[in-house]
């Protein structure tokens, strides 16, 4: 009997490992393909046989990317916008979540549920009304405008996630801080936030990557190269029915690096935050 159970476990373990390998290949293959294509010459990309690795590796696509396009400007703009959005999402998310988790006021439940509703509205429905708002506010083609637009999806998610996490922090700790003379803001900064680092890591990672990868709003709200983001820059590698695969893949590869580095830094907290905070409340 013992032997049978042990055998079953071993089989399950092998199946599990097999599935993990499949998922790993599934996840990494596009990434590998992107890098490999960026290192191929045009002739190899368009060759009859798809080559698994670059037979004559070349950095020509990277040369073209940096030599003929303002790629570094795109990186700069994406960075400004992603960091701006992340900082503001954290600030608004923390304050909003604290209010909804701890304060008692009329309409609290409605606002809390409204956050979810807001988050569920697809950007494809919002971009035209938002464009009108941005036009009125003279925020078209500005970093600020794009940051504000991105807050429309990052703040609801951040607030909702942090709200659940804040509720898991024992009320007694905060009450003790209040008794010791802390203000509401003080107890948020000194007590609740230090205990919510995993959730803050998730919010940071989420807001950054969402802003970094966003395309629709960037396409509609931005006109000039001074504000153009990487995702918009990528779309310019398609001219009519011709795809300039080499530079496009080079730019795609380079643009994945900042979120990747960020994830590696925050990985430990991100996993913890997703598994704890997201399921509470």
């Amino acid at each position: 009997m013992v032997r049978t159970t042990s055998g079953s476990r071993r089989i399950l373990k092998w199946i599990g490992n097999g599935l993990l390998v499949v998922l790993l290949v599934w996840t990494l293959l596009p990434f590998y393909w992107m890098i490999a294509t960026s290192l191929k010459a045009d002739r190899e990309i368009y060759g009859f046989e798809a080559t698994l690795y670059p037979h004559r590796p070349t950095l020509a696509a990277y040369g073209r990317l940096f030599g003929t396009t303002p790629f570094m400007k795109y990186v700069r703009n994406s960075t400004i916008i992603a960091i701006g959005n992340t900082v503001l999402s954290l600030a608004f998310g923390c304050l909003g979540a604290y209010a909804l988790a701890r304060l008692r006021f009329p309409g609290r439940a409605l606002i809390a549920r409204g956050l979810v509703v807001t988050y569920l509205v697809p950007p494809a429905l919002l971009f035209i009304p938002l464009f009108a708002v941005m036009s009125v506010l003279r925020l078209i083609d500005t970093h600020q405008g794009l940051i504000l637009a991105y807050l429309s999806f990052s703040v609801p998610f951040s607030t909702w996630l942090l709200m659940g996490y804040f509720r898991s922090v024992p009320l007694e700790l905060e009450e003790a801080a209040l008794v010791d003379g802390c203000s509401r803001l003080g107890s948020l900064v000194r007590v609740i936030l230090p205990m919510s680092l995993p959730a803050l890591a998730v919010v940071t990672f989420f807001s950054f990557t969402q802003s970094w990868n966003e395309f629709l709003y960037a396409n509609v709200f931005v006109n000039s190269v001074e504000v153009r983001t990487i995702t918009m820059g990528l779309s310019l590698f398609v001219v009519e029915d011709v795809f300039f695969w080499g530079p496009m893949m080079a730019a795609s590869f380079l643009s994945t690096l900042p979120p990747l580095v960020m994830y590696l830094i925050f990985q430990r907290w991100v996993v913890k935050g997703l598994t704890l905070g997201a399921v509470k409340g």
């Binding site: 035209i128 464009f131 078209i140 396409n219 509609v220």
Partner: peptide
């Protein structure tokens, strides 16, 4: 970008801009 012009144009026309 060629492929993205339609969405951008639709929004700008609706917004009167």
């Amino acid at each position: 970008a060629n492929e993205q012009a339609a969405a951008k144009l639709a929004a700008s026309i609706e917004a009167g801009n």
